[in-house]
Amino acid sequence: MNTPAAERGTDTVKRGLAEMLKGGVIMDVVNVEQAKIAEAAGAVAVMALERVPADIRAVGGVARMADPSIVEGIVAAVEIPVMAKSRIGHFVEAQILASLGVDYIDESEVLSPVDEFHIDKWSYDVPFVCGAKDLGEALRRIGEGAAMIRTKGEPGTGDVVEAVRHMRTMTSQIRALTVLGSDEIMSAAKDLAAPYALVKEVASTGKLPVVNFAAGGIATPADAALMMQLGCDGIFVGSGIFKSGDPDARAKAIVEATTFYKDAAKIAKVSRNLGEAMVGLNIDTLSPQELMQHRGL
């Protein structure tokens, strides 16, 4: 018999859920119907929000946490984990989302930041995922308590180029740490503007201490497999599914390409006849003020 002295919200428990999501696809959804389509297509989690990033761009103005009724409806409708986004630094939005029972909070640059400081994520039992463009950002977020990292990419564009850039940057910065002598770690920590202990840990293990997903601009099965081959642990798809011609077919195809990411024949097979991909925005046409990736460094 066990009467466990149960410990909640430990690092292992918070990082552990992200471990279970690996090799899977997390899909942005804005209502119960989309959440059910995502679950049936094999999503490992859904991100509940009021508008997908492409629509946030189109509408403009201040982007905030979703209406709690949207989040509650989705939490009630599916058995897979539900994530939701808070604004960077908006710890009350995070408290509200935790009270609604969400399984992960994305402190996200897709919404409008409210503070130059990020949320103190250690103080929550619910785990957080944060975006990063490079290793320094990733380790700062982990230092603040993030239990999962994702590339920022450039959300709502359907252009995967920035996610690729961010993943390559992180991988090459990690590789560079692994060859340093112990007397060089402090200087590397200073250059990365990252906590010494985490830099030391990455230098010795050669990997981030938490799971790292790809996000920002993934629109096709080939995009998903590309990010997996670049070493990501899994995939977030924002606007790419429900802004496309046939969301159900595209969702399934991206899930299958993520599992069989090294099998070009299978990826070719699932990529057939998916209808229109999201139209997309070329990164080069965006002005610097329109880029979301520079929010919350």
Partner: peptide, 17 residues
């Protein structure tokens, strides 16, 4: 029973005989 202990905030670790 899936998610029998609750949602993620109810996830836990403990010693088990």
């Amino acid at each position: 029973a899936r998610n029998a202990f609750g949602r993620q905030q109810e996830s836990f670790e403990a010693n088990l005989d």
